[in-house]
């Protein structure tokens, strides 16, 4: 069966996915505790946000808020907890692209980001890869702006300490 040519909406969807998909998935991964949950949450949130936007490009904050809400709902579910535990026993899916030429520092940093406490890591991801302002982060997470700012500072401090361990 021959595929029909992509519609304007389909092209818009693909462009949006190419631009934001990877870091939306990164945010979903950091919000959930298994790769399977991250994929579910990511897909459902994208579909939900797209439908709500009625053909327009969904607002970034809306997508993130939907991911966040769905991840919290999933986290409360007992059967998902079992699934997470099973998933945790397997190999961890890398969150970042592995660059073999870049040396150990980048891989170490990627691992250190992943191992940050959840509240610090969330702010860091939203700030660095989401390019969001602190008021935007505060609005999404429900934390006051000073709290969001200090969490970001703590995250950087933790990462700096981790990198210091690499120094000879």
């Amino acid at each position: 069966m021959e595929d029909s040519p992509p519609t304007a909406e389909s092209r818009l969807w693909q462009a949006w996915l190419s631009e934001h998909g990877e870091w939306f998935l990164l945010y979903a991964r950091q919000q959930t505790r298994s790769e399977a949950d991250a994929k579910d949450v990511f897909q459902e949130a994208l579909f939900d946000a797209w439908r709500r936007a009625s053909g327009a490009i969904p607002d970034k904050a809306l997508v993130l808020a939907t991911i966040r809400r769905r991840a919290i709902d999933l986290g409360r579910s007992a059967d998902r907890r079992v699934r997470r535990e099973n998933d945790f026993g397997g190999a961890r899916t890398p969150w970042f692209v592995t660059d073999f030429d870049a040396g150990d520092t980048r891989d170490f940093l990627a691992t250190a980001v992943r191992d940050l406490p959840e509240n610090l890591r969330e702010v860091l991801i939203l700030r660095i890869w989401g390019e969001m302002s602190f008021p935007e982060i505060a609005s999404l997470t429900g934390a006051p702006v000073p709290t969001a700012t200090s969490r970001y500072r703590y995250a950087l401090e933790r990462l700096r300490e981790s990198l210091a361990e690499l120094q000879p």
Binding site: P94, W95, L109, I128, W129, L159
Partner: peptide
């Protein structure tokens, strides 16, 4: 700057397949 140089992982093939078309 070092953090920004880390690129988030690309979408897995199965996920990309599910997201070929908008809902």
């Amino acid at each position: 700057a070092m953090l920004r140089s880390l690129r988030p992982g690309s979408l897995p093939a199965d996920l990309r397949q599910n997201l070929t078309h908008p809902p």
